[in-house]
Design a protein around this nucleic acid. Structure first.
Length: 280
DNA sequence: AGTTGGACCTGACTGC
DNA sequence: TGCAGTCAGGTCCAAC
């Protein structure tokens, strides 16, 4: 599923492909993609006719910065299975296409989403951190604001399991199931441990592991594991799955110590993967 | 306030 | 072969 490394890969690739073009039209192929707006027309009105002056990212969400009489931002919430593809305008519509931005210069930016958990939202501002969507978001993992000291205050009074707190976007922006499991493994900490009960050295290792794992994810252009549909904007899978130690490896031997990887169910019908010997 | 659980959604997989 | 049931999770919302 698209998390920070996947969204960052998309951001970086879009930058070279669509900045400078304008949105001629927004075609909505599934109305649900605009459900955050009063109507699909409300969304298209905010987007159509505007030049794309930049591409950004906040947490797991790629952003398009739009110019016009009033600056705007288009947010792609990719959900579980959302993908962006840049294709020639005559490319046939692929199954699962929920929207298409028709760009000047003969390209389409297509939004595909098998499970329809994703959506698009446009805000009449470029200061996304002031929108209700992002105002309570935690720091970006690669910002100076994200430190081991920050984790101390963010984890205090949090009795919930580390594996869950790491995915809380108000604590750190951009981490989901895959990278949460892998970060906990690299830090040598069980995801079932209460976040508020980490020691100082543990928070230090967690801080380091967060940056290392997310950097590797970006270097790999994201992860496209077994049941995942993630592809980059050219349709190419990422390779981070080849470097996973625990995610979706239940029962398989740990790559470090050989112990069978465990899976612990967590609320919401999900699971945390961890090694009983390498993680304390 | 923090935490939990249901709803949304659909392809892949399992079992009869 | 085929159909019903289960699973996976990001995010929002209601309820402890």
């Amino acid at each position: 599923m698209p998390e920070l490394p996947e969204a960052e890969t998309i951001r970086c690739q879009l930058e070279g492909e669509i900045v400078g073009a304008a949105v001629r039209r927004l075609q909505i192929h599934d109305r649900r993609v605009a459900r955050a707006h009063k109507s699909p027309e409300d969304l298209t009105a905010l987007v159509q006719g505007r030049p794309i002056v930049g591409v950004g990212r906040r947490g797991k969400a790629p952003l398009l910065f739009l110019d016009g009489e009033r600056p705007a931002t288009l947010v792609f919430r990719l959900g579980m299975t959302g993908l962006l593809r840049v294709v020639p305008s005559d490319e046939p519509l692929a199954k699962g296409t929920v929207a298409a931005l028709v760009l000047t210069g003969g390209k389409h930016l297509r939004f595909l989403d098998q499970r329809r958990f994703g959506s698009m939202v446009a805000y009449p501002t470029r200061e996304v951190d002031r929108t209700p969507e992002f105002e309570h978001y935690g720091p970006e993992p690669f910002s100076g604001e994200f430190t081991a000291e920050y984790l101390k205050s963010a984890f205090s009074r949090r009795s919930a399991k580390l594996g869950i707190v790491l995915m809380d976007q108000r604590v750190i922006a951009g981490i989901g199931k895959i990278y949460s499991d892998e970060i906990c493994f690299r830090a040598g900490i069980r995801p079932g441990r209460s976040a508020g009960r980490l020691t100082g050295p543990m928070r230090e290792r967690l801080w380091q592991a967060t940056r290392e794992v997310l950097s590797e994810g970006i270097d790999c252009r994201g992860s496209s594991a077994r049941d995942e549909t993630y592809r980059d904007i050219y349709g190419i899978p990422g390779t981070f799955q080849e470097r996973m130690f625990v995610y979706q490896r239940t029962g398989e031997p740990c790559r470090v110590c050989g112990a069978p990887i465990r899976r612990t169910p967590i609320p919401g019908g999900r699971g945390m993967h961890w090694c009983p010997k390498c993680q304390k």
